[in-house]
Design a protein around this nucleic acid. Structure first.
Lengths: 168, 168
DNA sequence: TCTTGAATATGATGTGTGTCATATTTTAAC
DNA sequence: GTTAAAATATGACACACATCATATTCAAGA
């Protein structure tokens, strides 16, 4: 009976949830966006507050603050409390790589976990996708290792890229 | 005061949650593992039941069943109810690519969404990471487009790879 | 046609991530 | 020293995904 085939054409793509796929976690997305903004505004000792940051990257303030605390504890960004305080980066931090931000927030599992979620997957005990995945992951890692915070900040500052919708 | 630096060394990597990073969603992981197992057992019209599948890929039965229903509706796997029923693949399905499984379960957002989670990110309005991400994503897509279900099943069947811990 | 084994459909529960809210500490300026 | 502005810390809430449970449909065989 090919009415079955007929029905299947209509039921195709039933699961229409706007999928949860993320290259990084939401925490990581906000963290990267925040630090890029800080880098882009980082000149002559200027400090930027959490409110200004979140307005410019369109992120929830409290949540982003929590992530910046993690980055602060990990010495990836500097913070100063009190009046005229805020977040800022020194020369050393501007030269940190994207991978430093990612591992501080999401940990190192990005580069070690099995693509199929198998705990026992390893070089000597590979899952069917192990080697193909390794190649992709290596590319991703290289990219993250080869990109500096300062570089991304400059790109944003010079208008070569944007973090929020441009006002009309 | 460099006791601050001292403290920071101890507080490094505070967020020790075993991170949620996943190249794919859990649904997708189970789906891929299940179909690889089906492919590996697919010979002379043999059908495999959900119980056997889940025992061999170490996945929760009900959840996996739900995912296989999605794949079944999308004609990526065949199913037959009743006695001696089960899941099986025909020649055409064995030649389907991994990307067909992934998009059926997780949708196409993997290849379109912005790496930093920005809705407005596009070619003309790129986020600071846009181009660097595009390269990685292209690699991933090529890999998924170039890998067949049957190929992975054969790899498993021949013992070149495993899906569960080998019994001692 | 009755029984049994299998997939299918639907709903209920749990857990973790993302979000929000409040209170505390710190620092600068007056 | 008092006040105000800022980060920091902690806890509470909400929603989505992952998981589990139950009921239904279907097909083969006796």
């Amino acid at each position: 009976m090919n009415y079955l085939l007929f029905i299947s054409l209509f039921s195709y793509r039933i699961n229409n949830q706007s999928t949860n796929y993320k290259m990084f976690s939401k925490s990581c997305e906000y963290g990267i966006r925040a630090i890029i903004y800080i880098a882009s505004e980082n000149e002559k000792g200027k400090k930027v507050g959490i409110t200004e940051i979140c307005e410019n990257i369109e992120a929830p303030a409290h949540f982003t603050a929590k992530i910046l605390q993690i980055l602060s504890r990990n010495r990836i960004v500097n913070s100063q409390k009190g009046v005229n305080g805020g977040f800022f980066l020194d020369e050393y931090q501007l030269d940190l790589k994207l991978i430093d931000v990612v591992t501080a927030i999401d940990g190192k599992a990005i580069f070690t976990g099995c693509g199929l979620g198998l705990k026992q997957c390893s070089e000597t005990n590979p899952c069917p996708l192990h080697n193909k995945f390794k190649a992709i992951r290596t590319d991703l890692k290289k990219m993250l290792e080869g990109t500096t915070i300062g570089e991304l900040g400059q790109s944003l500052k010079k208008g070569k890229s944007v973090l929020k919708r441009i006002r009309v």
